[in-house]
Structures are given as structure tokens and as C-alpha cells.
Design a protein around this nucleic acid. Structure first.
Length: 138
RNA sequence: GAAGUGGACUGGACGGCCGCCGGCGUGCAAGCGCGGGAGGAAAGUCCGGGCUCCGCAGGACACGAUGGUGGCUAACGGCCACCGGCCGCGAGGCCAGGGAAAGUGCAACAGAAAGCAAACCGCCGCGCGGCCUCGGCCGCGCGGUAAGGGUGAAACGGUGCGGUAAGAGCGCACCAGCGGGCCGGGCGACCGGCUCGGCUAGGUAAACCCCAUCGGGAGCAAGACCAAACAGGAAGCACGACCGCCCGCAGGUUCUUCGGAACCGACGGGCGGUCGGCGGAUCGGUCCGAUCCGCUACCGACUUCCGGGUAGGUUGCUGGAGCCGGCGAGCAAUCGCCGGCCUAGAGAAAUGGUCGUCGCCGGUCGCGGGUAACCACGGCCGGGACAGAACCCGGCUUACAGGUCCACUUCGAGC
RNA sequence: GCGGGUGUAGCUCAAUGGUAGAGCAGUAGCCUUCCAAGCUUCAUACGAGGGUUCGAUUCCCUUCACCCGCU
């Protein structure tokens, strides 16, 4: 297995508070932006944040399971985010929502997170560069 | 040894690397170093307290909860010990206040009758009628009878003797059960004994209710402090000088046909200009400077202040009915004394990921032992319960792979 | 975290402690050339476990699931 931390450039893979979404207002802003993307594993809300770094928020509802189960999901998501943070585009606010009750293996989660984030970033860039076809009132 | 009963405990271990949360130290900072970081149920939120805010003279009523007795406790619906009932051969387990001889209510179906007692069948007596082998039998009516039948969850004591037309606590003896009195034991629930009474009083109060005791409400998202933005209130604030034109007007001068007309005009207002000042923008590398715009009032903007307090931040926030050990009191729950210890504090919410070694369980393969069940060793694969602190405690309830220990019971075998 | 509420047929709802019903849906039949409507018939349930009671969907306790409110 190729361990995700086998990059000699960045030995340290920290997860500081600045890389997390920590306030209800931040969550509201992302949800109001209404741009989501998903696959078999995750639903990902994304919004450009005009900041140098990307931030991740977790939303694991009680439908997923009991507290132990929800914590397992959140820890695995945080770990995936920590390990793949250097490959993710910057300047996005993300919210990750689990799709199924069972948390998948770490590698699957890493791959899903990277893929979804890149797609979200690409879409955000398209919207920003090309002016909207039918401009609606703000 | 087998089967069981009650209770206590444990909930993989060690290490490397990368992370997370908060603490201390250091550093301007980035960071670095040191040590700490889930549970017996942290769960459910079923009870009880502490703490905080609000409310409150006292009493009564209402409502809710609890209910054997004595104790423990801050308190409890909890715990301990004992009393009573039921279940179990037993170790033990389960249940529970009193009142249905205060009142109100309820009991489907079945059954004659379901709470006042009551007569469907049956039994007995009398009367009438019929039959007759004159013993009696059948039918109808009146009356007696709760011993027998059958129904039901439940039917007004049981056995025996006497008694009677047949029967009946109608009488008697014993038993069961009820009530009163006395004696003894116990703090008490209650237990034991003696005696008297009358033979009878049914069930359900986790139906209403009566009795006793307890209970103000809300909850750390309680509450406290700081405090953007927006809105509210108050105060401040810059325009000044001069010139020209126009308007209004106190007043004045001259003329007059006495109706008025002409001119001047302090003061106020409007428009325009010049100069100075203030503010802003542009040019310019910067100051100076140049150009342009605005500067009258209300309003607005701006500045300052005020109260309330939103977002946000800080606090409450972990040292407490605390934990460990020893001694003592007590059957015990528990309490006292002494010594030691500090042991998570987050906030879209930390306690994780990965690798290695060992241990446990299951499967499988090989080899060895054994008649066999099985056991030992080694290899490989897989698994590792229930479950995550959110102000803090005391309980209860529920969930839980595997494992450990203690006490006791019954049965079997041996000594 | 705290507070409150609800579980009855496939769905929506009833039911003084005594056989659990109604409407829609479903099955079968009648009617019709066929369908619809109508009529008749049938099947299906008290979330789970204990307790009180002769008897529990109903009363009490425990438990499970779901819903709502506070922020």
C-alpha cells in the first residue's frame, strides 16, 4: 500500500483549527450558497471563501447511528482530510455529509474527498470566470 | 464431579511514527519541550439532591408522588436489617400500607341466583285429581328446605355426631377463619399463649375515594461580565469678509391735482462673483503647489456620549456529599478519625490513524499422544462486546464478547 | 442537552376493564358486451416485556421506535 504520507516535501501533515469550519455562520453561508456535489460515499457542499486555505466542516446526523458510530465517521473524515489536504485546491469552504450508515475504508474516503473537492473547485472557477448566461437579480 | 443460587471484579498489554484537545514552561513569533486526556454503564432520562435565576406573609383547598416496621442518607420512589404473604427440595427469589363491618361504583358470558340474599332441577310435607297389583306411582297447586346437581374467576366455612317430615351452626366436639379482652416477647411491624363472643362478615382501591407523609417554578441552552453592526435618544459641528443685481420691509427725503408718485434705504432673504478658510478628489515620487467639487437651513453625513443588549467573546467549568489506604463503631446500609493523592474539561464539539511484538477466542492444516471424546506444539486466516464525558453528585433501569474470584445449596462418588 | 407527545388492519382514524370497529385499499362473487359505479363475501391489527385483576388495547412499571418544541 502506498501510504498517503509518502511525500518527502511535506513531512508534517497537521490539521490546525484554521483548516476547519467552526462557526454556525460559516455553515449557514455554505449551505445558502447551494452548491453540492456527491458520489456513493459523500455529499459535499462547497463555496469559495476568499481565504488562502481550504476549510472543512462535518455534518453527521443522528440518522447515521449512535454517538460512537457518528464519532467513527467524523474521525475517519478528519483523518482523510488531514492526509489529503496537500492535494486539495485552496480557498474553499467545504461541508462533508455521510451518505451511508457505514463509514468506508480510509483510502476510499481519501479518494472520494479529493475527487469531489477538485470537481467542486473546477465548477466554482467556471462560474466565476464566465459570466452567467441569464443574470438573475442578486 | 454434575446441576444451580447469591455477590464482587475485569472489560486486552507494551512500544515506534503521524495527528487532535486543553495545561505548564520557553520564545517577538513560527514553534519547541514536559506531563495529562472517556465509562461501568459516560446510555435511557425514571427518581432524588447540590448550584443558578424567578416567585413567595400565614393557613386551607386543589393537583402530583410515595406507602409493612426500624434504621442509613443532603435527599430519594434508593440501600440495609427485620416482619408478613406466595413460589422453590434447598441456597434463595418475587410481592406488598390500612380501610370493601365510611361512602359511591364495577363484575361480560354462563348460571335459578353475583351481594338484598336467592328455589331451576332435586328432597320433604299438605291439599286436589287420575291410575293401581292398595306397597305406591303420575300430574297440578300451596308451603318447607341451601344437604345434593349443574354454571362460573368467585355461590355465605370443613369433618363427624345429634337432630328433623326433609333439612339447616338448629345444637355439640374438633379444625379453619373473624372480632374483643388479658398475659408474655420485641423499639416496632409482628409473634406466641389463654379466654370470651357469634357462626359470619365475598372480590376489586396499580376503580373513584378515605388516612398519613412529602412536594413553589424553571433549568448551565440556568445565570454573570465585556461588547461590534443595525435601530433609538442626547449633544456638538464652519463658514467668514467684500462687491454687483433682484425681492420684501421699518423708516426717511422730495414732489403733489392730497388719490398718490419718485428716490434713498438700516435690516432680512435670493442669485452671481472675488478673496480667505475648511473638507474631499485628481495630477505629481513626497511636502509645497495647481485644477475641480462641496461648505444656506431642516434633514442627512460625521464626531462624542447614553441606555438596552444581538452577533461574537469571557465566565459558570471542574477540588468534590471527591479518590486510595489504614484503624475504629455497627449484623449491615453507613458513619467517625488519621495519612496520602489531584484524576478530561470540548464547544459544528478533542481522546484518533498506522505499523510491530505478545496475549485471548474461533476456523483450518501438519505432526505427536490417546480406543475415543479430546489434549499439546507449530503454521495460516479471521475476530475482539455494549458503548463516547458536555454543570456536578447519589440511586434506579436497560445493553454487554470473553474472562476472574468469593460464599452457599442439592445430588453422586470416595475418605 | 432539556422539555413535551404518539404508537390499533396496507393507509387514515374510533372504541365505559369483558366478541376490537369504520372509511379507503385488497380477495372472491353478482351486475355489465367490457370498464367504472353499486351490492354481497372474505382476509388482515392493539410496538415489546413484566405486574395488578377472574379477565388488560384500556390501569401501573420497564423498554423500543417515531414525532414536535427550546438553541
Amino acid at each position: 500500500m502506498t501510504t498517503p504520507r509518502s511525500n518527502p516535501e511535506e513531512v508534517r501533515q497537521k490539521l490546525p483549527k484554521e483548516a476547519r469550519l467552526r462557526h454556525p455562520a460559516d455553515f449557514d453561508r455554505v449551505y445558502r450558497h447551494r452548491r453540492s456535489i456527491s458520489d456513493q460515499v459523500l455529499i459535499l457542499y462547497a463555496r469559495p471563501n476568499e481565504l488562502p486555505q481550504t476549510r472543512l466542516g462535518l455534518s453527521v446526523s443522528r440518522k447515521v447511528g449512535n454517538a460512537v458510530h457518528r464519532n467513527r465517521w467524523k474521525r475517519r473524515l478528519r483523518e482523510a482530510y488531514r492526509l489529503t489536504r496537500h492535494e486539495l485546491p485552496s480557498g474553499l469552504d467545504l461541508i462533508a455529509i455521510p451518505r451511508g450508515p457505514e463509514p468506508p475504508e480510509l483510502e476510499v474516503l481519501c479518494a472520494s474527498l479529493v475527487r469531489l473537492t477538485r470537481r467542486a473547485d473546477k465548477r466554482a472557477r467556471e462560474i466565476r470566470t464566465t459570466p452567467p448566461q441569464h443574470p438573475h437579480k442578486p
